[in-house]
Simulated assay, not measured.
Amino acid sequence: MTDVDLKGKRPISPHVQHGAYKVTMSMAVSISHRLSGSAAYAGTLFLAYWLLALATGPEAFETAQMLWGSILGRLVMFGFTWALVHHLLGGLRHFIWDIPAMMEKPQIEFLYLATVIGGVVLTVLIWIIGYSVM
């Protein structure tokens, strides 16, 4: 066999720049699950800051409240809420697969969509309920 023959039969590189990979739902949901876990971790640090400010005294708490009450602060908190909910739903999806259940392709696709859509819907619902209680 010559080198020319080998090059013709070699697999295509899976690198994204070569165009061999097409972004699939499973790939996107897997990446978003990892990102939401990191965002939830970072958001927990912000929550710890808020609790420390509460414990420190009225001036520190007022500063924290001003930060979180701003438009940017609320946007960060909305993203934190989404990260928590999305990561929770992704964990439930993995728990269902650990049973094992819903392992057929249509069911798997349903769980992917339920994770993505459910994360957004539940986040919006949590914020609607939060604002209605205030």
Rank of each mutant, 00 (worst) to 15 (best):
V23Q: 06
S38N: 13
F110A: 12
R10A: 15
E59T: 13
Y131L: 01
M1Q: 01
L111G: 00
L89Y: 07
V133W: 02
A101W: 04
A42D: 07
M134T: 04
Y21V: 10
A20H: 08
G119A: 09
I126R: 01
L35N: 09
W68I: 13
V29Y: 15
F46S: 12
A83M: 06
L92H: 13
W82L: 08
L122W: 02
Q17H: 10
Y21A: 11
G119R: 09
W50D: 14
R34G: 07
K9R: 05
A60K: 14
F78A: 09
G37I: 10
M27F: 12
I129N: 01
A114Q: 04
G57W: 14
W97D: 01
T44C: 08
L92D: 10
L6W: 08
P100T: 03
S36P: 11
L72A: 12
H15S: 13
I99N: 09
L89F: 08
S13T: 09
T56P: 10
I129Y: 07
P14S: 05
A39V: 14
V124D: 01
I96Q: 00
M134F: 02
L52G: 05
I129S: 03
F78E: 01
E59R: 15
F110C: 04
M25K: 03
L51S: 10
Y131N: 00
H87A: 07
A48F: 11
I12K: 08
V116N: 00
A48D: 03
H87M: 04
G119M: 05
A101L: 09
V23E: 06
D5C: 00
T63C: 03
Y21M: 04
Y131M: 00
S36E: 14
T63D: 12
M66V: 13
V29K: 14
L125T: 11
A60I: 10
D5A: 07
L52D: 06
L52R: 03
Y112S: 05
D3N: 12
Y49K: 13
R93K: 10
G43E: 07
G79Y: 06
L72P: 02
M102H: 03
E109W: 04
R74H: 06
L67G: 04
L54E: 15
G19Q: 10
G8R: 05
V4S: 04
K105P: 12
P14F: 01
T24R: 14
T56M: 15
P14N: 04
F78N: 02
R74N: 10
M27E: 09
W127P: 08
S32Q: 08
A42L: 15
L35V: 15
F80E: 10
M102E: 02
L111W: 01
A20G: 02
